[in-house]
Design a protein around this nucleic acid. Structure first.
Lengths: 134, 134
DNA sequence: GTGCCACCTGTAGCGCACTACAGGTCAAAC
DNA sequence: GTTTGACCTGTAGTGCGCTACAGGTGGCAC
């Protein structure tokens, strides 16, 4: 079964899982960063290892990492992503997860609005330069 | 004459200029950051000093700093802001300024679009948590 | 004339999010 | 059996954008 993870990540994960390099390529997160995320407790569990001690990522791991990417790329801090992971490990924390996510959403929305305000000013400046160069 | 600089910054600058603390309060840029920007060559000229060697900001300085704030808050690097300042010091660089600004605009737009894509996914997650908590 | 305070310069330090080794293991390829 | 290469752990280093001193000056208030 193939699944959309990030909008652009659709992949069939084999039963033996994916290597760290494959996950890096699929998600755009660097290999070192993936190990760093794990060290920092951002993954739900330490990624399972094969007989040789190498990480093998399965579908759930990949989906979670794609979630991290979305949070990260919208500016959530490592600390808050860790908080989210901590909550998701425990039952009955749905309210807190919702709060964390909702606060994040508000911050992102505010940021987008500010950016668009600034963008209009920048575009006005561009228009003036274009006008003066004709 | 009172003037809008940042949308939220409308101020009558007295003839003797404003102190660094006043500019900091008006623009939201910290005092140390203002000095840092100057050191880094982000201002068009070194801010003029009074008899005691203190910075006195006039309307043009304030307007430029507000411009920096917009660029900065839309993610332009210090290096690119310096490039912009360097260009604005020289005549006949209008084409390059336009290019720099246009490239920045493209990057910001791409970033906003990506953020909004992620935001939709985050909102879907929020909706699911809200549904499950009823 | 002595506090006091806002400001100055110069330099060092910090927080964040990675990123880059060094030195080692394991399994398949030759 | 040795070479290769992807991976491992642990720790140190990096780049960015500030931020925080330390030590000093100038000017006004009392």
């Amino acid at each position: 079964m193939s699944e959309v993870l990030l909008p652009e990540v659709t992949v069939e994960v084999p039963p033996e899982g994916l290597s760290i390099t494959e996950v890096s390529r699929l998600t755009g997160v660097g290999v070192e960063a993936l190990r760093y995320y794990e060290r920092e407790g951002l993954l739900l569990d330490p990624t399972p290892r094969d007989s040789g001690g190498r990480r093998r990522y399965h579908e759930g791991d990949l989906a979670w990492i794609c979630g991290l990417v979305m949070l990260r790329e919208t500016g959530m801090s490592i600390a808050d992503m860790r908080r989210m992971a901590d909550l998701c490990r425990r039952d009955g924390t749905e309210k807190e997860r919702l709060e964390l996510l909702t606060r994040h959403r508000e911050r992102v929305l505010a940021e987008v609005r500010r950016t668009q305000r600034h963008l209009r000013a920048i575009e006005a400046k561009i228009t003036r330069y274009e006008a003066s160069s004709t």
